[in-house]
Design a protein around this nucleic acid. Structure first.
Lengths: 339, 339
DNA sequence: CTGAAAGCGCTTACAG
DNA sequence: CTGAAAGCGCTTACAG
């Protein structure tokens, strides 16, 4: 234990004293309300604030208001590049609205999602973002807490008791597979988490059906480099291999690339790959990944804006995903292949 | 504005009432002190807590105590894989100590580091981690705030007014370059942020000198994929190229790999590469990167432990970096090359 | 436009 | 071992 000579904090009372007003008036000027303040008084207060280097105590404010300037977030895995990039965008957006993000990773071993939400609520968060798949029953419970909540990347789309937003996974996947089909590939497998709720698998299947192609194989892979790598090894060791692969995430695709390269299979010449997400890493893989990019910054902005405005009604808000064409599909850089 | 039927929160008073004790006693059992409580009373209180689903209001507690169960953190860029992985480890460690992390990105455009620290302090953080380079003057100011603070990855080592911890960058770099030297490479360039304070550059130079080799070129690159990519293009276009490269980060090395591959230079055959950090991505690059790995989880654990114990004295705590040998240096997988 | 005062939900010194 | 009460630093209804 070290002795920290913690300087006594300057409080609203100090500011009030120095500027010769009551603490209420100090609040009115700092919060721009709820009462008007005479311009001259206002100036005096602001002057005192500057002179004293006063900063409002966030805990006191939160206690008094019943809510803090903090947006809580539960994320599946903050290490994953997609979420790391999304979290960064959320931080940037929240700063613009004078909020900060309190981020916790989903901790499956220790607690239920609802438990974790409760922990966050106990911290007086003013809004909540959940980047994980949450069942209907849990959504009910969370909605009953009465705090503005938004689900991100809930594969399934609308339906639950909570507001949700994200890209149209099905349409995005369809777009990716159509591009592969346009290249002339006729055997296209899916690599991704084999959760029935993942609309990317459905989009893949739909695109194949529409093109009159046989359904390819669906290869299970967890959402990680390791998952993609394992899937890649499995595919490489097969007697007959597909001509192309649609991967549910760029991270999976990068693992795939490593495994295929190790097996001396060339991408895109032997096996073409298109993936999903549009993380920065996709551009630096070799071959560079053609991918369906999610509008990360735009989604983060919208999420914060809605939470701040307390506008998080149930229903799904869709964002457009855009196909970014690079080389892994067989196109040349910058040359958008036909489709 | 939506009408949220916010249920009235159950408070300590409710628990006290139900269990027939005062609110003070409820506090004593919930906090295990500072006063002892009779076992039977204790049980009754706990029972009431369960029955009511009571959760302490963190803002009230923070206001009363003067400090919250929150550890603030300022990070250069939470998107970068190294920090994303470090942040994740910090989150895991903080959960074990019943803390949570309040992470903000360093915002150079809007505020000084000291400003950002003040914002965090206003939120009653109980500890602070700064993952950025902070000058001596700023360190003084921050130290005067009296909140336990730890600097992470401050290249320079000891000296400032704040406690610091990290890997020995100089020794780690030396190790990397010695490995390259052991491979027989005689022209070895450095690729990294050309900050004079970065001890990795010094370690590189030291290793070359000790080996009696001429000093290679020092190629400037920002800590990003893009930085490494640009450096790689520059190197590829030179008339005479080095036989090997030591990159200051894995992220830079991955950018480098992309550029060298585009230029049809083979790694390690034409140019060998060893980098620094040990991020997950290094294992999935092709060729897989030989890298000097920082003990991310261990450092994160230690940081949280020290902050919680209020043991963040000035001085630099060094962690060991370990060379992870893969293929980009010219070794075969799993075969540790001689040195 | 300004102020006195109650209240938010905890913690903890003080008294018993 | 237990309780009554002051205090942490804000916000805001109420009164002027």
């Amino acid at each position: 234990m070290v002795q920290h000579p913690k300087p006594r904090n300057v409080t609203r009372a100090d500011v009030a004293r120095l500027s010769g007003v009551s603490t209420a008036v100090v609040s009115y000027v700092l919060n721009n309300g709820p009462k008007p303040v005479a311009p001259a008084t206002r100036e005096r207060v602001l002057e005192a604030v500057r002179a004293l280097g006063y900063r409002p105590n966030a805990a006191a404010r939160a206690l008094s208001r019943g809510t803090a300037d903090t947006i809580g977030m539960i994320v599946v895995d903050s290490r994953s590049p997609f979420f790391a990039q999304f979290l960064h965008a959320l931080d940037a957006a929240s700063v613009r609205h004078d909020r900060s993000m309190l981020i916790v990773n989903r901790d499956r071993e220790r607690q239920s999602a609802v438990e974790q939400v409760h922990d966050l609520v106990a911290r007086q968060i003013g809004g909540l973002i959940i980047a994980d798949v949450i069942g209907d029953a849990e959504q009910q419970v969370i909605a009953a807490l009465g705090i503005p909540t938004l689900l991100i990347n809930q594969y399934g789309g609308a339906g639950g008791a909570l507001g949700a937003m994200g890209v149209d996974f099905r349409a995005g996947a369809e777009q990716a597979v159509q591009h592969l089909v346009a290249h002339g590939y006729r055997t296209i497998d899916f690599v991704g988490d084999a959760a029935a709720i993942d609309q990317r698998e459905r989009g893949w299947a739909d695109a194949l059906r529409e093109a009159g192609l046989p359904l390819g194989r669906s290869v299970h892979a967890s959402f990680s480099y390791e998952g993609g790598f394992a899937a890649g090894r499995a595919i490489a060791s097969r007697a007959t291999r597909p001509r192309a692969l649609f991967a549910a995430s760029d991270q999976i695709a990068i693992g795939l690339l490593a495994a295929l390269t190790d097996a001396e299979l060339r991408v895109p010449d032997d096996i073409a790959v298109v993936s999903f997400d549009g993380i920065v890493e996709a551009a630096y893989a070799r071959p560079a990944l053609t991918t369906v990019a999610q509008p990360i910054v735009e989604m983060a902005d919208a999420a914060i804006r809605r939470l701040v405005a307390d506008d998080a009604e149930p229903g799904f808000t869709t964002f457009d995903a855009t196909l970014v064409v690079r080389r892994s599909c067989g196109c040349d850089d910058g040359l958008v292949g036909g489709h």
